[in-house]
Amino acid sequence: MKHLFACWGMGLALCISSTASADETVIGYIKTITDQTTIDESAGPIKASLGSPVHVGNVIKTDQNGAAGLTLKDNTILSIGPNTELKIEAYQFEPQQDKLQLNASLLKGTLHYISGVIAKLKPEAVTVKTPTGVIAVRGTRFLVKIEE
């Protein structure tokens, strides 16, 4: 929470954060962004910018003016609107080893999802959790809004 306040205090708008155990493997990059987005990294929230790497465990956060888009290694696209928190819970993309997984959580706000290779090769390996349930994906594009 301390980090969060520091982040807002500095007037940042997109944060990406992650747990201390976050894997260092880059699973995708921030590809579109307003200056209102942060990423919660293990060391605390950092201001996200175009090209910021995304890791498993990261929470991508936007404030009331923020928006951001990311493209993951399997070509999955996730773009979010204002007042949103999106967590990447798990991700594996090693088709040669049949290691395929994408679990994200939309904690609040709005998400636009476009499926990538993982959803094509192994649809059951993709889920988007919401506060009230789980969305399973069968090769598609959809929108989700979480009302607080």
Partner: peptide, 30 residues
């Protein structure tokens, strides 16, 4: 309007897949 919801969209290639929401023992397929 005020509730949390999802919307299925057509893919950019013109195809449409499906989404399945599971919550509170219920399953909704769009």
């Amino acid at each position: 309007c005020a509730k949390s919801y999802l919307v299925l969209l057509e893919d950019h290639d013109g195809s449409t897949g499906k989404v399945i929401f599971s919550g509170a023992g219920n399953e909704t397929v769009v």
